[in-house]
C-alpha cells in the first residue's frame, strides 16, 4: 500500500464557512443513516431481545411455563462447571491457533514479501484457504484423520489411533483445520505490515553487521508492532467465536465444546430460549472484554486500524 492521503477537507469553493459546514454535516448524516440503521437493526435489536429473553425461564416447547426470573439464568450459567469447561476449551483453542498462526503467518508473509519467483501463484494459492467454506475445511481435515477414510494414521504409522476419541487429539485436529483456513488472513495483514518497515533501516542494520536474527527482532518486529497487534486482535475475536469446525468434527463430544457451540445447543437444540439467551449474552460480553483488554491493555492503536 502506498502512503496515506488523508482525505483533503472539501474546500475550494467560496461558500460561507458555517453554512457549508452545516450542509456537509447534514449530508454526512443523511448518507450514513441507512448503514447505521441497518447495522443497529440487525444486531442491537436482537441483542436487546436476547437480554430480555435471558431474564425468563422459557422453553419453546413449553410456552405456558414462561416465567420472569430476573438474573437467575446468569447465576445458573456462571456457577455451572460446563460453562467454565467450554470457556477453557475455547480459550485454549484461541490461544493455540492464534499463536501458531502468528508464527506461520509471519513466515508466509516473509516469503510473499521477498518472493521473486512465482509471486502471483503464491498469492493466489494463499487466498484459496481464505475463500474456502469453513465447513468444507472441517470435512477435509476430519476425513483425513478419521479412522475409516483417513490417510494420516497410515502415513505416520499410528495404527488405529482414534483422533476423535480423546479430548486433546480432537482439539489438535480442530486447531489444524482452523489454522489452515485462517493463516492466510493473518499473513496478508502481516505482509501489509512488513511493507511498512522502512527498507533504509534494514540496510543500515545490515551495514552495521547485524545478523538476520538481530535485524528481525530489533528492526522488523518493532516496526510492525501495530500490524501484528491488529492481526492478533482480529484473529482472537474471530477464533473465540469458533463453531463450524466443532460442529462438523466432534459435535461437542470429548469435551471439545466451545462457548458458541454451548450457546447454540441451549438455544437451538434444546430450545431453552431463556437459559440460551443468558449464554449468548455472556458470550457477547466475553468478546467485548477481549476487545477491551486488547485496546486498553495492549494499547492496540485502533486509529491505525481506521487508517486515520
Amino acid at each position: 500500500m502506498t502512503a496515506t492521503t488523508t482525505a483533503a477537507p472539501a474546500v475550494g469553493i467560496p461558500v460561507p464557512v458555517s453554512e457549508r459546514a452545516r450542509n456537509e454535516k447534514r449530508l454526512g448524516w443523511k448518507l450514513t443513516a441507512p448503514a447505521v440503521i441497518v447495522m443497529l437493526a440487525v444486531t442491537a435489536y436482537p441483542m436487546l431481545n436476547a437480554l430480555w429473553l435471558s431474564l425468563f425461564s422459557y422453553r419453546l416447547t413449553d410456552p405456558a411455563a414462561r416465567e420472569f426470573i430476573g438474573l437467575r439464568n446468569y447465576g445458573v450459567v456462571l456457577s455451572d462447571a460446563l460453562w467454565w469447561q467450554t470457556v477453557v476449551t475455547t480459550v485454549i483453542i484461541t490461544v493455540v491457533t492464534v499463536a501458531v498462526e502468528l508464527v506461520i503467518g509471519f513466515a508466509f508473509a516473509m516469503v510473499m514479501h521477498r518472493v521473486v519467483f512465482g509471486r502471483k501463484v503464491v498469492r493466489t494459492s494463499i487466498l484459496i484457504p481464505y475463500g474456502i467454506i469453513t465447513v468444507v475445511s472441517a470435512f477435509a481435515w476430519k476425513y483425513a484423520f478419521a479412522l475409516d477414510s483417513g490417510f494420516v494414521n497410515n502415513w505416520f504409522g499410528l495404527g488405529d489411533f482414534a483422533w476423535f476419541g480423546e479430548r486433546w487429539s480432537s482439539i489438535v485436529v480442530i486447531c489444524m483445520s482452523e489454522i489452515w483456513k485462517t493463516t492466510p488472513f493473518m499473513s496478508l495483514l502481516l505482509l501489509a505490515g512488513l511493507a511498512q518497515v522502512p527498507e533504509v533501516l534494514q540496510e543500515a542494520a545490515a551495514v552495521d553487521g547485524a545478523t538476520w536474527r538481530q535485524r528481525l527482532t530489533r528492526v522488523t518486529l518493532p516496526n510492525m508492532k501495530g500490524a501484528i497487534m491488529v492481526a492478533v486482535l482480529f484473529r482472537t475475536l474471530d477464533a473465540y467465536r469458533l463453531f463450524d469446525n466443532v460442529f462438523i468434527m466432534t459435535a461437542g463430544a470429548q469435551k471439545t465444546e466451545t462457548v458458541s457451540f454451548l450457546a447454540y445447543r441451549q438455544m437451538i437444540s434444546r430450545t431453552a430460549l431463556g437459559l440460551g439467551s443468558a449464554v449468548s449474552v455472556l458470550l457477547f460480553l466475553s468478546v467485548v472484554a477481549i476487545a477491551a483488554v486488547f485496546i486498553k491493555g495492549f494499547k492496540v492503536d485502533l486509529s491505525s486500524v481506521r487508517g486515520r
Partner: peptide, 26 residues
C-alpha cells in the same frame, strides 16, 4: 465529508463485524 460521529460509525462497524453470530441466532 467532515461531520461529527464518523469515527463512531467506523468503530460501530468494527464492533459489529466482530459480533458473535451465535449470540444473534436465538
Amino acid at each position: 465529508l467532515d461531520f461529527p460521529g464518523k469515527k463512531l460509525i467506523l468503530s460501530l462497524a468494527l464492533a459489529i463485524a466482530m459480533f458473535p453470530a451465535v449470540s444473534l441466532v436465538g
